[in-house]
Nucleic acid binder design. Structure first.
Lengths: 142, 142
DNA sequence: GGCCATACATACATTTTTGTGCGTACCATA
DNA sequence: TATGGTACGCACAAAAATGTATGTATGGCC
């Protein structure tokens, strides 16, 4: 009960963020899995189960949710083949594909920076090994 | 009680994310305020109170937290002038400055995309007006 | 003394994100 | 009949992010 605070700072900010081009973009690639999925699909279309394999540690729920959001955001396409064991393929839309170079730059920046910054401990273990996340990361975006 | 699950998928994923260059980068610019602060500081050094003015709706707590994190991540510098009313100036570090072009691209992408995508309702109100967030957004990054 | 401003800190509450565990429809194959 | 695979859906739970409210130290000014 008490107050539902529909007009709290939180709500207002949320409204603002979707109205700012930059934060809007960050909301779309933000979160734990979005860019990884993006990169994974950057190489080629993949089906649900393939994405699961490629993304280490993602749960089915998260994969579904993220894909749904990305679909709503118009950066991936979803194609259902009404076959016997169901088959669903995910593809990058054009606007999604436009994000790939940005991902690549983030990847480069991350690499450079992590070597420079001497482990300022934001994770738990933080061994500075650059695991490449399967084929999730586009080594050559173009 | 029950289990604290130190080795839950969550923890493992967190570890993975800091070991992947790309997600590492996203963690740094991700969140509600990071890029806005980044962009704001991209133009010129600013002090705490100035940032507050420039960032619509941010709370002092959030501003402090974000700045602290960005400091730890080595993308901003913090300079304290031991004056009578305290004065603290925040500057972009070099690695922070390297993010500016990426921000600019995100900004561009966001602009293009939001015009194309016909409001798929991720926010509350979602009027497609592109507010420029004060001077937070670098219109010409170079 | 009382009030102002700055740049926070701290306890607490709420919201959002992410994860856990289980179930389902379909048909095939053993 | 039992089991297996695909691509999810759903209820619940834990964790992380964000917001609210209040306090603090300093010295100047009235």
């Amino acid at each position: 009960m008490a107050k539902l605070k529909e007009n709290s700072t939180n709500s207002q900010n949320r409204r603002f963020f979707t109205s700012c081009d930059m934060t809007y973009a960050v909301q779309i690639i933000g979160g734990r899995w979005k860019i990884l999925i993006l990169s994974a699909l950057g190489k080629e279309a993949k089906r649900y189960s393939q994405l699961k394999k490629v993304l280490p540690g993602i749960t089915e729920r998260m994969l579904t949710l993220q894909l749904r959001e990305m679909e709503m955001d118009g950066i991936v396409h979803r194609t259902v083949y009404p076959e016997v064991p169901p088959r669903v393929e995910y593809t990058l839309a054009d606007i999604g594909r436009e994000l790939l170079p940005i991902c690549a730059q983030l990847h480069l920046w991350g690499g450079r920076h992590r070597n420079a910054a001497t482990v300022n401990a934001r994770g738990t273990g933080s061994k500075p090994e650059s695991q490449e996340a399967g084929d999730a990361i586009p080594s050559k975006p173009a």
